[in-house]
Amino acid sequence: MTDPRSLLSSSATLGTAFVLLWCTGYIAGKLMVAHAAPLTALVWRFGLAGFSFAVFALATRAPWGRPRALMHSAVAGVLMLALQFGGVYMAMERGAGAGVAALVIGTMPLAVAVLAVATGQERLRAVQWCGLVLGIAGVALVVADRIGGEVSWAAWLALLAGLAGISLGTVYQKRHASTVDLRTGLAMQNIAAALVLLPGALWVEGFRFAHASDFYLPMLWTVAVNSIGGFALLFVLIRRGAATRVAALFFLMPPVTALLGTWLLGEHLTALKLAGFALAAVGVWLVARPAATTAR
């Protein structure tokens, strides 16, 4: 019989690995846009990831499902991948730090909650509204010293577009694309994202990237580690029945990314930013935590 403590320890190890791998994607993205145009970098990333997932799906005889379901999956991919990361990479090219980008995108559960209320899918409790206020206050603390500084308003708008992409994509995925097989769904989403971004990469950016290891290494990292390895770990954690703990792990993304950015990119981390990270994490936790049940 399997020792429950062994399973818990294993899930904790996988969860720690998942957080670290996921957060490195922001660092690798920052390195990529230093040597490539943002949309071009993403076409490389999503194109290679989509090809890898498609080959894996074919090799394992994964079901592709009905065309309508695949189309829904493609729409979700355009929102969650093309719009989200397009906004993030364009913002980082314009001066946004990896930690700030992670924090803005990390408030996704707050935005999703607002969308759910607006569309009548759920109602928020008072404590959840308090969480929304705390989350917004946390973001304000983190970005206060950057507004009007080296980060342009175009970068903030790009990050908000990225936040809208992952938020709308999450709601759309839940309602319309949750029945597609994981392997074929990820292949379709990555391929659709690459195709949508390709015209901009070709005609606006001239498909500009450096033929050097400074670009290829972080690009391959985002494909193998973030797009493939990160989603594989996520799938394993959910298969082990740790879905709620996986959701809680996203609360750790902004501070961990900020620390990685400080060590690897030399980004400035202040006490005010740390307070903002903590406040935003508490806000997201209050919004996402389940309602207390009455003991019998």
Rank of each mutant, 00 (worst) to 15 (best):
G50I: 06
G230D: 03
F46M: 04
R45N: 13
A17R: 09
L220K: 09
L159N: 09
L198G: 00
G185M: 07
G131L: 12
Y26K: 10
I136T: 14
A247R: 12
V284L: 13
A144C: 02
L186M: 13
R175P: 05
V114P: 14
G162M: 12
S178G: 12
E93S: 10
F53Q: 07
M188Q: 04
F46G: 01
T270I: 15
L195V: 04
L233Y: 03
F251S: 14
A118P: 10
G65Q: 08
M188N: 06
W156V: 04
S227A: 13
A28P: 04
G29S: 12
L279Q: 00
I105N: 06
L21Q: 11
R68G: 15
A154H: 01
P63G: 00
T16G: 15
Y172C: 15
W156A: 04
L264E: 06
R123E: 09
A113I: 05
L186C: 00
T13E: 09
A275H: 00
T40N: 08
I228W: 02
L157E: 09
G169C: 01
I166F: 04
M253N: 15
G185V: 02
A243S: 14
P67M: 05
G230M: 01
L274E: 02
A144I: 01
F51G: 06
M80F: 11
A242H: 02
L79Q: 05
A111P: 05
L249T: 15
V171C: 04
A101V: 03
Y172G: 01
A248K: 15
K174D: 14
V117H: 08
P38Q: 08
R5T: 14
S227Y: 01
A275W: 05
M219H: 06
S227F: 11
A69I: 07
A275I: 12
A158S: 14
S11D: 08
G65K: 02
A212K: 09
L157M: 14
A161D: 07
V19M: 11
V117K: 10
I105Y: 01
P109W: 00
V104M: 11
P290N: 10
L259P: 01
D181E: 10
T60F: 03
V139A: 12
L197Q: 01
V196L: 13
G120Y: 11
L202P: 06
L79A: 05
S213M: 11
G120P: 12
A295D: 14
S52A: 15
G29D: 03
L233Q: 00
A34K: 12
R61Y: 03
I166A: 06
V133N: 13
